[in-house]
C-alpha cells in the first residue's frame, strides 16, 4: 500500500479508537494487524515482543480504571487495556513493514510536503546511530571530569544542542553543495505512485472501521 495513504489510514484508526469504548473492535484490529504483519513475513519473535513491551503500561491503565474508575469500571478497564494493544499493533504495520525512505519519498511526491522538510528530517534520522554514539561520548567526557550526566542534567542537553547546531549547519551546507536548492522544484529518480488500489484500500479500510464502530452487534 502507498505509505502516505497507509499513514493516513492509521491516523484515522488511532483517532477513532481513542474515542470509542468497544473492546471487541480493539481486539479485531489487533488480530487484523497481526495477520497483516505475518503476511508481510515479520518474525514471530518480533510479534511476541510487541505483545510483551506494552504489557506494563496496559496493566497500569487497566488497574487505574479498575480501582479508581467511576461507572462501568470493568468495561473501561478492558477498553483501555485492549486500546493500547490496538495502538501498538496497528502502528507496527507501518513501522515494521514500510521503509523510511519510501515513506519520505511518498510524503514529498504524493502529499506535496516541501522537500526541505522531507530531506531535512531524513538527514537527521540517518544520523541516529552517530547520535547514539555521541551521547555516550558526552557522558564519558563528563565522567572523566567527575560529573555524572543524567537525564535531568542541563549540561547533557546543552552539549547535545551544541552538537546539533554544528551538525545542522554542516549538513545544510553539504546538501546545498550537492545541488539541493530550498524551495526549488525537483525531479525524482525514485517515483512513488498512488494506484487506484491504494485508494480502494484506504476507503475500504475507513468503511470497515465505521462498520465496526457503528453497525456491528457487539456495540
Amino acid at each position: 500500500m502507498n505509505p502516505s495513504l497507509k499513514l493516513l489510514l492509521l491516523l484515522i484508526v488511532a483517532l477513532e479508537i481513542s474515542f470509542t469504548t468497544i473492546v471487541s473492535l480493539n481486539v479485531a484490529l489487533v488480530i487484523l494487524a497481526g495477520i497483516y504483519l505475518l503476511a508481510k513475513r515479520v518474525k514471530l519473535r518480533t510479534l511476541l515482543w510487541l505483545l510483551i513491551v506494552p504489557l506494563i503500561p496496559a496493566i497500569g491503565l487497566w488497574s487505574t480504571q479498575y480501582i479508581n474508575g467511576t461507572g462501568q469500571k470493568e468495561l473501561m478497564a478492558w477498553v483501555l487495556f485492549t486500546r493500547i494493544y490496538a495502538f501498538v499493533f496497528t502502528g507496527a504495520t507501518l513501522t515494521l513493514t514500510t521503509d523510511v525512505l519510501e515513506l519520505t519519498d511518498s510524503l514529498e511526491q504524493n502529499c506535496h510536503l516541501p522537500a526541505k522538510f522531507a530531506y531535512g528530517v531524513l538527514a537527521a534520522y540517518n544520523l541516529a546511530p552517530k547520535i547514539k554514539h555521541e551521547v555516550q561520548v558526552i557522558r564519558a567526557a563528563g565522567l572523566m571530569r567527575g560529573q555524572t550526566l543524567s537525564f535531568w542534567s542541563p549540561q547533557l542537553y546543552f552539549k547535545a544542542i551544541l552538537i546539533s547546531i554544528t551538525w545542522s549547519q554542516n549538513l545544510a551546507q553539504a546538501m546545498a553543495s550537492h545541488g539541493f536548492v530550498e524551495d526549488a522544484p525537483r525531479t525524482h529518480y525514485r517515483k512513488v505512485r498512488v494506484r487506484p488500489v491504494d485508494w480502494g484500500l484506504l476507503i475500504g479500510g475507513i468503511i470497515l472501521l465505521q462498520l465496526g464502530v457503528f453497525v456491528m452487534p457487539w456495540h
Binding site: V121, S164, L171
Partner: peptide, 10 residues
Amino acid sequence: IILLALIGVF
C-alpha cells in the same frame, strides 16, 4: 529544520 530534527533524535 535539520536542527530541530537533530534535537529530537538527541
